[in-house]
């Protein structure tokens, strides 16, 4: 295929944290993931972009097995994804996920949202979990909202709580599935700033987004997907200034010129 890969300078290939090999998936007749090969090193920030329906979100969701794949292997920290069950649950605890629609637990307060996983999955003491939750909420800038319910918060605040909830599990890698797509324009930045800070702190991140500014400033590598394939991988500079594939040129010309 027209795959043009560029080896990234930032991280060595030895400590690959997430590896997808020859992954395929269909939704009925639609071949959403076609022979996907992708490795992500520890500490790397990979931004996945591409037109709607190109399989970006499916790729992201397949990494913690919210979507099953039909063939190929996905390994996280050297361990292949297990079947649905306790072992998969344990592995998911190490993979933070942030959704487009926040998905905060609607019947729990903000603080309880960030505590729940720690207490029930990590078996942390309640007091310690609350302390950590408050620290994380402060870190993402919503510490004052701790006792409110998710519905009482703005979208941007909810998404930052969702990031704190994922961070509370001390994940090895964070998946972001279009984290700003459901937000009003003025709230996008507050979420992106939190993500940028996270990237600076060395978190391994896979980010599906339409925010080209974020891709430029925070990514080590841009993965461009179209029609279920990875068409191009490059550093942000290289990808945005000098895309190699026609598909990427076409995509960029449509989004960057206004």
């Amino acid at each position: 295929m027209a795959e043009v890969s560029v080896t990234k300078d930032a991280a060595p290939a030895a400590d690959e944290l997430v590896a997808l090999k020859n992954v395929n998936k269909h939704f009925g007749a639609l071949h959403v993931l076609q022979d996907i090969d992708l490795t992500i090193a520890a500490g790397e920030v990979v931004v996945v972009i591409g037109p709607s329906g190109s399989g970006k979100s499916t790729l992201c969701r397949a990494i913690n097995r919210l979507e099953t794949v039909e063939s190929g292997t996905i390994t996280i920290d050297g361990k292949p994804l297990p079947q649905e069950g306790k072992e998969l649950a344990r592995l998911r605890a190490d993979v933070g996920m942030v959704f487009q629609s926040f998905n905060l637990f609607a019947h729990k307060t903000v603080l309880e949202n960030v505590m729940l996983g720690q207490v029930k999955v990590r078996k942390v003491e309640k007091a310690a979990a609350a302390q950590k939750a408050r620290a994380l909420l402060d870190r993402v800038g919503v510490g004052t909202q701790a006792d409110k319910y998710p519905a009482q918060l703005s979208g941007g605040q909810q998404q930052r709580v969702a990031i704190a909830r994922a961070l509370a599990m001390d994940p090895k890698v964070m998946l972001f599935d279009e984290p700003t797509s459901a937000l009003d324009p003025e709230m996008i930045n507050e979420v992106l700033e939190v993500m940028q800070q996270l990237a600076r702190d060395g978190m391994t991140m896979i980010v599906v987004t339409h925010e080209m500014g974020f891709a430029r400033s925070a990514a080590n590598r841009v993965v461009f997907m179209a029609d279920g394939r990875i068409v191009e991988q490059a550093t942000p500079d290289e990808f945005f200034n000098n895309p190699r594939s026609d598909r990427a040129k076409d995509f960029l010309s449509k989004i960057l010129h206004h």
Binding site: E84, K86, A89, G96, M97, N103, L116, R165
Partner: peptide
């Protein structure tokens, strides 16, 4: 999905 993604069992 959110519950499963933080490692909760079924």
């Amino acid at each position: 999905e959110a519950a499963r993604s933080i490692g909760m069992t079924f």
